[in-house]
Simulated assay, not measured.
Amino acid sequence: MKDIARRVFDIEIESLLHVASQLDDEFDRVIQAILKGTGKVIITGIGKSGLIGKKIAATLSSTGTSSFFMHPGEAFHGDLGMIGADDIVIMISYSGETDEVLKLIPYLKWNKNILIALTGNAESTIARNSDYHLNVSIKHEACPLKLAPTSSTTAALVMGDAIAVALMESREFKETDFARFHPGGSLGRKLVLKVKDLMRTDNLPFINTDATFTELVLKMSEGRIGMVIVGTGEKVEGIVTDGDLRRALVQIADTSKLNISDMMNRNPVIVDENEYLNTADNLMIDKKIVTVLVGSAHKHTVKGVYQIYHN
């Protein structure tokens, strides 16, 4: 079975290399046409090509190019009304002769839409009736019968990814842009949310420098953040982490001789509450810590704490 899998990979990789070798200036013209367009990019196709089209439309939409998929069969029952004159239509058909897609062309030309064909046949009807043609022809399908779309759908999928990435780079699409389209994902949370949105402000474990060892341990346990904050919110003198506590006990076993002033870190990391989560997380990873104080490093004031292992 592993040999079969490797054969499939080899055939599809060879197919992608073949498609890549056929790329020419037409790809540049397609990208420029989309960049100059003022409407949406509509993807259409049927069967396996339709499934690939749905993925391409989703990728475009999430990376800065307004796009949606239109089923060619549904188009004849009202969905043609979704197409504006400024929209660009990408038609996916490996043969270039798919009947359901061909039937769309007269209306799309009447509507003055720019047409882009993704086919494996530059002389096909769909290719010849389009403004631009991207050649996704392959040498072999990975299917042993050479019938089921395998390499050909992979080629169309990767061509769609190439279009999306080229548009992203042309538009200088940034992580923050991506996050705005994915507010529910982890990246969106990190790049849209700020530290103040997830910091903890209630029952912070403040303690005085003259507190006893027992008071220190109890306060650290109550705080449940792996540290205590020495001082007050208006004036932070330092922090004592559970690691600081363990190291102190290794050196001095007699707890009556331990004092907070000797154990505490007088220069704790303090981040501003308006810092983005992504920036705060990267800082914490760099310093190998999981909790930071939130406030003013300059004034040594604290409003809350933020932990990197937030939900």
Score class of each variant (00 low, 15 high):
residue 235 K to Y: 14
residue 242 D to I: 06
residue 193 L to Q: 14
residue 214 T to S: 13
residue 212 T to M: 02
residue 211 A to G: 05
residue 203 N to G: 06
residue 185 G to V: 02
residue 148 A to Y: 11
residue 160 G to D: 06
residue 227 M to D: 10
residue 151 S to F: 05
residue 186 S to M: 13
residue 224 R to L: 01
residue 228 V to F: 02
residue 186 S to F: 14
residue 174 K to W: 02
residue 182 H to C: 04
residue 178 F to I: 05
residue 235 K to L: 15
residue 209 T to M: 14
residue 233 G to T: 06
residue 235 K to Q: 15
residue 238 G to Y: 01
residue 148 A to W: 07
residue 197 D to W: 13
residue 241 T to L: 04
residue 151 S to M: 10
residue 243 G to K: 08
residue 158 V to L: 08
residue 195 V to C: 00
residue 228 V to K: 00
residue 208 N to V: 08
residue 226 G to N: 04
residue 169 E to N: 12
residue 219 K to E: 14
residue 165 V to L: 13
residue 189 R to Q: 15
residue 148 A to D: 09
residue 223 G to E: 09
residue 207 I to Y: 01
residue 235 K to I: 15
residue 224 R to P: 00
residue 241 T to H: 04
residue 151 S to V: 11
residue 168 M to P: 00
residue 230 V to F: 09
residue 236 V to A: 04
residue 238 G to F: 05
residue 160 G to R: 02
residue 151 S to Y: 05
residue 185 G to S: 02
residue 221 S to Q: 07
residue 179 A to I: 09
residue 203 N to Q: 11
residue 157 L to G: 03
residue 223 G to M: 04
residue 220 M to F: 07
residue 165 V to R: 09
residue 198 L to M: 10
residue 165 V to P: 01
residue 197 D to Q: 14
residue 195 V to E: 04
residue 172 E to W: 07
residue 182 H to K: 02
residue 196 K to H: 14
residue 150 T to R: 00
